[in-house]
């Protein structure tokens, strides 16, 4: 097997509470491994701890116990080591597209001129050509998400965490963004962890799907996707994929308590 990009070893976590009572445990003794150049989706109902998982990986939160390994090495301070694209685009409204996208470079101490050059070279591929001097407020939702994605890629990290990046887009824009993302990923081969609510999206994009099936999370149910790449959207109509989708939906439905 190829080497691991991310590894959880018996990680447990609960949020610290402000008052004295103890918050419920969110993750308990969880272990899993993500290999390099993999595309893995995380599927789970609302509140199951998906975003919490990302906060642990980025280093915004530290596990109560257990180790998190990046590229095979234990790292205590992980801030600045992974690319993170939050659910909202979170562009700084006073910065132009160029300035927004080059922010991670700027924070790494890259000279402005060099950083801008690097961003400009990528704008075309991200469908943002000619928009470098615009402010985020004039962009459409899909464009903003692409800027946000460009920004996370420019962090230079080999692991990208995408938290429901397309959930705020309409169905048609979402579909073309998915195809665009796959295309980009196939060229770059960075490792991607992708949170989504949408079973179709997970099936279309991923090598493997992790299903969060219990609270607290003790293990991730792993579902490999039997599809070759490159994929087309019609592959989702194959009988085995439809079967898989039904299984996944059933599993998720059991978890949703009304």
């Amino acid at each position: 097997m190829s080497n691991s990009t991310l590894q959880f070893k018996k990680v447990s976590f609960r949020y610290e509470s402000k008052n004295n009572d103890i918050n419920p445990s969110i993750i308990e003794s969880l272990s899993f491994t993500i290999h390099s150049s993999e595309f893995v989706s995380i599927l789970g109902p609302s509140g199951s701890g998906k975003t919490t998982l990302f906060k642990l990986i980025t280093g915004l939160e530290q596990p109560s116990s257990g180790d998190i390994l990046l590229n095979g090495k234990y790292m205590k301070n992980r801030l600045g080591c992974v690319g993170y694209m939050p659910q909202k685009d979170l562009l700084l409204p006073w910065r132009t597209i160029l300035q927004n996208a080059s922010l991670p470079l700027e924070l790494r101490g890259v000279k402005k001129k060099v950083a801008y050059q690097q961003v400009i070279e990528l704008l075309e591929e991200f469908g943002l050509k000619g928009l470098e001097d615009e402010l985020p407020s004039v962009l459409s939702g899909g464009m903003k998400q692409r800027v946000s994605f460009l920004r996370s890629i420019l962090s230079g990290a080999n692991l990208l965490l995408l938290d429901e990046p397309f959930s705020s887009l309409d169905a048609i824009t979402r579909l073309s963004m998915q195809e665009w993302l796959l295309n980009l990923w196939e060229k770059r081969k960075t490792t991607v962890l992708f949170i989504t609510h949408d079973v179709d999206e997970a099936l279309f994009l991923s090598d493997r799907i992790f299903v969060l099936s219990e609270t607290p999370v003790r293990h991730l149910k792993e579902v490999p996707i039997p599809l070759r790449r490159p994929r087309g959207i019609n592959d989702l109509h194959l009988p085995e994929i439809i079967k898989l989708k039904e299984d996944l939906l059933n599993q998720l439905r059991q978890k949703v308590r009304l």
Binding site: L60, Y84, P86, L90, L103
Partner: peptide
């Protein structure tokens, strides 16, 4: 300034001073 924005800058490896100058002041 929003906590989410602050968290995002932190994941990019921003220091306290950088968060102050690039996020809080604007």
């Amino acid at each position: 300034s929003s906590k989410e924005m602050r968290d995002l800058l932190l994941t990019m490896g921003a220091s306290k001073k950088e968060i102050f100058l690039k996020l809080q002041v604007p």
